[in-house]
Design a protein around this nucleic acid. Structure first.
Lengths: 154, 154
DNA sequence: GGCCTTGTTGCAACCCGTGGCAATAAAGTA
DNA sequence: TACTTTATTGCCACGGGTTGCAACAAGGCC
């Protein structure tokens, strides 16, 4: 009860200290984000904001998300279909695995990604942003069931 | 000179043998694809088709691309911004590395991807579709220059 | 050649997301 | 409190991409 009030206050203060502003629209989005778990698409967030305040405008939501990403409160990536996907208050950076056949998704945590991250760092000097990674393919069940990627071959 | 004619004929026959049709619109797209190198976005392909036939419609192009993907003639993935990107007649499956700071992109070939592909296969039984992978992060130059991802922190 | 089946096209409407711009309203200051 | 600055909003129009649907036409068949 107190924690949610203080989380709003915390955000408000962080915004103000940067010369940014605390507005009703941002408050709404924060409420939505606090209720959200895991991954949400931008469109879903807009919809949920509209449930609270029907006057919500998409552009405002997306612009606020940009701000919140600067503050590290959300991170965005792109799902298998290229749509934006937001991770709420990521406790740990993680990527995603997406099965093209059944549509399932799994998280790739830092431990599992170590090999990948290190190999790019060593071979290329490239620093991977894990939160932005979505690996598409076939999960165990689907690949052993001989499923194809949808639309593959006839 | 003969090869391009025969490539059209080959495609035409493959389409017909599946009960699909060889149309002027598909011919146009094939011409465009043959002239294209490497990666092209969907919008670029539409534009190039329009250069040949101004009556070209986006939906037709995208639908034809779907068909060609079934035939393995193109493969699509999503760039760092989530937009569609097509690889023309991929000689080798490959993924992409994209630097968030300078915008550069590099290919990840099968050799380099072996570790990744194998580790997902062994740990998860997951078959990675390399052509669909785009890894975002910072390249050697940008990360050593201390560049940030655009829009990161203030 | 004409006919028929059905794959394709083009249109129109839609979805997700972005960007310019004028009007609004936070919030620091007096 | 009133004033001022300027970050933010809402609106509108756009760009990329998808989809339902009626009209069209490829191409197999006689």
């Amino acid at each position: 009860m107190m924690s949610s009030a203080s989380s709003a206050e915390q955000l408000r203060d962080r915004l103000r200290s940067r010369g940014l502003r605390w507005t009703p629209q941002r408050r709404t989005l924060l409420v939505v984000l606090e209720a959200a778990q895991g991954h949400v698409t931008g469109a879903e967030l807009v919809e949920r904001c509209r449930a609270i305040d029907p006057a919500t405008t998409p552009s405002t939501v997306y612009r606020t998300l940009d701000v919140l990403e600067d503050l590290g409160i959300v991170q965005h990536g792109h799902g298998a279909d290229g749509r934006e996907e937001f991770h709420v208050r990521p406790e740990q950076e993680h990527g995603h695995l997406h099965c093209a056949a059944c549509g399932g998704t799994w998280e790739i945590d830092e431990r599992e990604a170590t090999t990948i991250v290190n190999s790019f760092r060593e071979e290329r000097g490239f620093e991977v942003d894990l939160s932005h990674v979505t690996v598409v393919g076939l999960c165990r069940e689907c690949s052993s069931a001989g499923n194809q990627q949808p639309g593959s071959s006839a």
